[in-house]
């Protein structure tokens, strides 16, 4: 599987694998309230909880892609609402550099996304996952997916 496979998306029954990094205080709560509010969302997201979005090292994102993630989502508290005062300011900087590497590397821009989701925004979280899943289904599996990984 290489660029040919990527050019022919929507293989039979293929579901994208999305890694979503969520901060403990806001977006993880958002994911929680999405469930409590019974908002429908596809089962494509694998949530990884971190204490703060500022903890997400670009290395974690690279690793997710190299292990076979089709998309990686970085989510955190809204700017100004960070539990650790300025953690998400740092996320913004790291994300900027990360974004540059991923774009220059030739990955589609849908594969890496940043979103601020508070604990009460369950619907926003569900919609976000749904949108990203749709986008990824359109562009197909990640070209960085190792052989043998679905």
């Amino acid at each position: 599987m290489s660029s040919e496979a990527a050019a022919a998306p929507k293989t039979n029954g293929w579901e994208p694998k999305i890694v979503a990094f969520c901060c403990n205080w806001c977006s993880y709560g958002g994911a929680d309230s999405a469930g409590m509010g019974r908002f429908q969302q596809p089962a494509s997201a694998r949530i990884i909880r971190v204490m703060c979005s500022g903890r997400i090292d670009p290395l974690h994102v690279f690793n997710a892609f190299l292990e076979g993630a089709d998309a990686v989502l970085v989510t955190g508290c809204h700017i100004g609402d960070c539990h650790y005062v300025n953690g998400n300011d740092k996320t913004k900087i790291k994300y900027k550099f990360l974004e540059n590497v991923v774009r220059e590397l030739g990955l589609e821009k849908e594969r890496l996304q940043l979103n601020w989701i508070s604990a009460s925004e369950g619907e926003k979280f569900a919609n976000f996952i749904r949108d990203v899943t749709e986008q990824i289904k359109k562009i197909g599996p990640s070209p960085l997916k190792p052989e043998g990984v679905v």
Partner: peptide, 15 residues
Amino acid sequence: GDAYRMSMYHLVRFL
């Protein structure tokens, strides 16, 4: 040993 499609070493250095 990792069967990755890109070298992690170079990815981190690119960044």
